[in-house]
Computed example of a mutant assay.
Amino acid sequence: MRLKVIATATLLLFGLSAVAETPNIEPGMWEYHNKMTFQSDVPIPDQEHTNQECVTLEDIERGDAFLEDVEECDITNQEIRSDGMDYSMSCHGPDGTEMTMDASMQFYGDRTTGTIHGEMDTPMGPMQMTIELTGERIGDC
């Protein structure tokens, strides 16, 4: 479950129930680069991931340009603005793993930056992670 949540967080695939303002995100093909660092008693190497995703005007208007539901997680706080979004979430895995995350994203039309801080209680002990992410529009879908 931990890897699923981390990967999902990295790709920013979390559900939103409502959008207060339309995010300043241009529709098109986006490329995202994410770097995860971990702090724990068990050494885990830094991980980097790059992916591409088509973001449509409909995705942006619905508020899920970067987000979709993760059944094991509950959004505990969210604020969406035209220039970014902040959210917090709590996730519970079937193996007893628990994770909380606080994220802050900034939107600049054709690019985005953000940071996600997470804390997990795992069978291997407590763990902290930080994800630094960047995204840019690279063309049409």
Rank of each mutant, 00 (worst) to 15 (best):
M124S: 12
N34W: 07
R81G: 02
V19Q: 04
A20K: 13
A103V: 09
E61R: 13
T22L: 12
G125I: 02
D74N: 12
T56V: 08
V19D: 05
E79P: 07
V42Q: 02
E21G: 02
T113W: 06
A65R: 02
G96C: 04
Q52R: 15
I44C: 10
A20C: 08
H33A: 14
L67A: 11
I138L: 03
W30M: 06
E98D: 09
R111K: 11
S104P: 01
N24Y: 08
G96I: 03
F14A: 04
Y32D: 10
D95F: 05
S82T: 09
P123Q: 05
A103Q: 02
D86F: 07
L133A: 07
R62F: 08
D46Q: 12
E136K: 12
G109I: 08
D69F: 11
G118T: 04
T100S: 10
C73N: 00
T130W: 00
R2I: 15
G114C: 01
G84R: 04
A65Y: 03
D41Y: 14
F66H: 03
T10Y: 04
D74T: 15
T22D: 11
K35D: 02
P94Q: 15
P123S: 04
M105P: 03
S40K: 02
S90D: 13
K35L: 07
A9K: 04
T10K: 06
Q39R: 12
L67D: 04
D121G: 09
I60V: 08
G84K: 01
A103I: 06
I75R: 06
E21R: 07
T22G: 07
L3N: 13
H33V: 15
Q47G: 09
Y108A: 13
E79V: 14
M89T: 02
V70C: 08
T112G: 14
T112L: 12
G28L: 03
A65T: 01
F107I: 01
D110T: 14
H117G: 08
N77C: 10
E132P: 07
G109P: 03
A65I: 06
S90E: 14
P94H: 10
V42G: 00
D64F: 15
N51E: 15
Q47M: 13
P27K: 05
T130Q: 05
V55C: 04
N77L: 15
I75N: 00
D95P: 01
P23T: 04
D41T: 15
D86G: 13
T50C: 12
N24A: 11
I75D: 00
T22K: 14
D86M: 14
D110H: 05
E61I: 11
Y87F: 14
P23I: 01
C54V: 12
G118S: 08
P45K: 13
D86P: 05
E71P: 13
D95G: 05
